[in-house]
């Protein structure tokens, strides 16, 4: 199994969209390395013939009737948004400068 170093933590944090300070990256690399070593044992437990379980109780997909249901009032939802304008969420520019 691979180990987790600071470069890997920085790469994962970027994928997870979490800004980390340099000291956080160093500390997390040490901690995650210990955790990953401990959990890596799972790959040795089950053979190829064991099916995966994604859900504790077997389920079939549930569909409801295609009718208009209750929705939340727009003002109440937008009242909790960091920024809103004209009945819509106001968000920063979606594309970067280079795009």
């Amino acid at each position: 199994m691979s180990t987790i170093n600071s470069d890997e933590v920085a790469r994962l944090a970027a994928l997870a969209r979490i800004d980390l300070a340099p000291d956080e990256i160093t500390r997390l690399a040490g901690e995650l390395d210990v955790i990953v070593q401990a959990v890596a044992t799972v790959s040795e437990v089950a053979g190829d013939d064991v099916p995966a379980t994604s859900h504790p109780i077997p389920l079939t997909n549930v569909l409801r009737d295609d009718v208009v249901g209750r929705t939340l009032p727009v003002d109440e939802v937008l009242a909790q948004a960091p920024a809103a304008e004209e009945g819509m969420f106001l968000v920063p520019q979606i594309l970067g400068e280079e795009q």
Binding site: L32, V42, S43, A46, P51, A52
Partner: peptide, 25 residues
């Protein structure tokens, strides 16, 4: 970050896939 790691390409089968098999056991 641990979850992002476990689900990332190249590790998915070894970690998340194996963990789901353990769930069956």
């Amino acid at each position: 970050i641990l979850g992002t790691y476990a689900l990332s390409a190249g590790y998915y089968d070894a970690y998340y896939g194996s963990a789901q098999k353990v769930r069956t056991l």
